[in-house]
């Protein structure tokens, strides 16, 4: 989770990743940022993210992102 927060801060700084649950809905993360995050997640955690996973439910908060990463690691 710490690593994830670091990645988020690096790609799109100045957002409250600990608490914010509307990262997509509020436009804090745009599509460029989403894909940059996915690229880093794939490198850092060895998961493979498909287009089916790119939904607001998975990206609206750091928690949701982490849940997705964990789920993908298990499925792999």
């Amino acid at each position: 989770m710490e690593q994830l927060l670091e990645i988020l801060e690096d790609i799109q700084p100045d957002a409250d990743y600990e608490n914010c649950e509307t990262l997509i809905d509020d436009g804090i993360l745009d599509s460029f940022a989403i894909l940059s995050i996915v690229s880093e997640l794939e490198d850092a955690f060895g998961v493979s993210v498909t287009p089916a996973e790119i939904v607001p439910e998975n990206f609206n908060s750091a928690k949701a992102l982490w849940a997705m990463v964990c789920r993908l690691k298990e499925e792999a």
């Binding site: 599509s31 894909l35 996915v38 993210v49 498909t50 287009p51 790119i54």
Partner: peptide
């Protein structure tokens, strides 16, 4: 375009 071209191509 984002959902059906951009993301699939990028991934």
């Amino acid at each position: 375009m984002k959902d059906y071209v951009f993301y699939p191509v990028s991934l």
